[in-house]
Design a binder for these strands. Structure first.
Lengths: 345, 345
DNA sequence: GTGAAAGCGCTAACAG
DNA sequence: CTGTTAGCGCTTTCAC
């Protein structure tokens, strides 16, 4: 049924070592033997058993990627890039979804210790610092995105405070005076950081911070953005601009505004965060903070790779990847409505 | 460094067999021994080596999922569901991206033979029938979605012809007479099937088929939908309704329409296909064919599971999972603009 | 009930 | 250059 190295060796009339050499591309094999082995390989249809190989080599060839949910555009896009980056290093990626709950995040982290992955990229949502100590069985971990916890583990993300500040400064530069925010959530590290950036930009623009202008969001989904926008609109003095902590919230806000007949950006300008692919096509197209997701994926893979192959225990690294402000119709006015992204390829 | 069964056995003063029995929950172990083993397990922090276990057991515990791109919402959503369904059966999922190219699809299929997965869910885009013969090394395969090829392999999908017919019939029932389509593409099985359903609905509504009303789309992305919509609008007699072969194309069409100042659905009604999460929030919200993706994922996992554990070679199955027509603003008129999906949870 | 030993398929010394 | 041999960590007959 399943053909092994030994079978091939017997058929070719050589030892397993020789077959192994051929299979692994070892240079010095007598041409005559090589020919016979290759023939046997072909006729038997031999396929190496990667599991056995890895057991022997002490590595698994797998990497885990822990994210809340693949159906969230940001994570779908990120996962795709991680898989591509990992592939270049010979890794296959195993994806674990946690729904952003602490218990599932803990469970996932614990399961990582079972020697089935060489390392893991972890995008926590609710994990606490106390959850980390050797929970992952000592395999190399890289933390992705902003996190509330402070643990000595490799980490890669964009500068969230600066990014949020950039977004809000853009709104202020447009002459907006009542700039709201959507996405306050004490459980999320990102929320704290983006809120901090928001406040900095406000004060630099000479605007005062007003607590009622910061709407909470339990989750960062479209529906929550719409609901939050509605509460903002019900304020005695509603905002003329809103910084949403991610694009999904912004898309929801766009919809809530359309439903009450307010125009974007004329009445209310909107800025998002993440630059999901869909945000370039919303009506109006969304101005947003665009993290370089590919750079983030590459940096993370590079980091695990160094940990896995590196012997010297160096201090945890904290890498910041670039971002940019993508200005589109939701803050730029109707003039740009003529610009449609050209079909790629 | 890494603690093995043997280490635990030594510490507990028993044999590896006994430890193995405890670890695997074998019932008949002398209480005294069980206690000592559990203690040793705890103090050493033993984690089973899943790879070794699987090598011995002859299974890997992994499943592969082959899709074009995770950044495409449909596949992100589907992958999330597949991972969840696979987990219930004790499988971890390995995701392979092919970008929809035949060469990468072939390569992925070939790599499946390396004994690292117990089975695979394959969503082909460009694969030919000739690519299949034992390319996957004889592991159980389940084909996902519609495919042009006719191979004797398990298959699960919705009834594409019927779904397309349903969508177009809905448009016709609204009184639309010039119903166009976007997404013609001879390389895609889905395209052929949806086109067939489109034609059936047209003739049943007493409308004649017109070749110029079927716009091609090289890829099914938003930008291609926008471009196709523009060519349709340039027709001497433009359409008053469009059936888009997926939601992404429809979102693009919505944008192209907005740019020239046409109203949806008053001037042109739009129907999509896939029911991406974003489609419930577009402006206007998109009427679309909603496949039951969770049912699809469950059915596929169930099928591989039966193949993997089943010994009797039964004939390939062809399972059809349910779908529905989700009627929203893009065909329902502005009346429903007040209905916003409530925040989940 | 539990120990000893074989071996899953492969790679890596180590001889020759 | 190539054969022999010893495991990687685990499960599993087969005795005791």
């Amino acid at each position: 049924m399943t053909v092994t190295l030994k079978d091939v060796a017997t058929l070719a009339g050589v030892s397993v070592k020789t077959v192994s050499n051929v299979v692994n591309g070892y240079a010095f094999v007598k041409p005559e033997n090589r020919r016979r082995v290759e023939e046997a390989l072909a006729t038997t249809g031999y396929r190496p058993n990667v599991g056995a190989r890895n057991l022997r080599r002490g590595r698994t060839g797998f990497l885990a990627l822990m994210v809340p949910e693949l159906s969230i555009p940001y994570f779908g896009e990120l996962a795709g890039l991680v898989i591509t980056a990992a592939q270049k290093r010979g890794w296959s990626v195993l994806i674990e979804q946690t729904q952003g709950t602490r218990s599932r995040e803990r469970a996932t982290l614990a399961s990582l210790g079972s020697h089935l992955v060489d390392g893991a990229l972890v995008h926590p949502e609710a994990l606490q610092a106390s959850d980390f100590p050797d929970l992952a069985g000592g395999i190399p971990l890289v933390l992705l995105g902003e996190h509330a916890v402070d643990v000595p583990i490799d980490h890669v993300a964009i500068d969230n405070v600066l990014a949020a500040k950039t977004a809000v400064a853009h709104l202020a530069s447009l002459g907006r005076r009542r700039i709201a925010a959507i996405g306050r959530n004490p459980w999320r590290g990102t929320s704290e950081q983006r809120l901090a950036g928001y406040r900095v930009a406000l004060s630099e623009a000479g605007l005062s911070y007003e607590d009622s202008l910061v709407a909470p969001a339990e989750k960062y989904h479209r529906a929550h953005g719409a609901a939050a926008m509605k509460t903002l609109l019900a304020l005695p003095s509603p905002p003329d601009a809103v910084f949403c902590f991610n694009d999904l919230l912004a898309i929801g806000a766009l919809r809530a505004l359309a439903e009450v007949g307010l125009r974007v950006p004329e009445d209310v300008a909107i800025v998002g965060f993440d630059n999901n692919e869909e945000s370039a096509f919303s009506l109006p197209a969304l101005t947003t903070i665009a993290p370089d997701k590919a750079a983030l994926a590459e940096a993370a893979i590079d980091l695990v790779h160094r940990r896995v192959s590196g012997s010297s225990p160096v201090a945890p690294e904290d890498i910041q990847t670039p971002f940019s402000l993508e200005i589109r119709e939701s803050t730029a006015g109707p003039g740009s409505w003529l610009s449609i992204p050209p079909p790629p390829g």
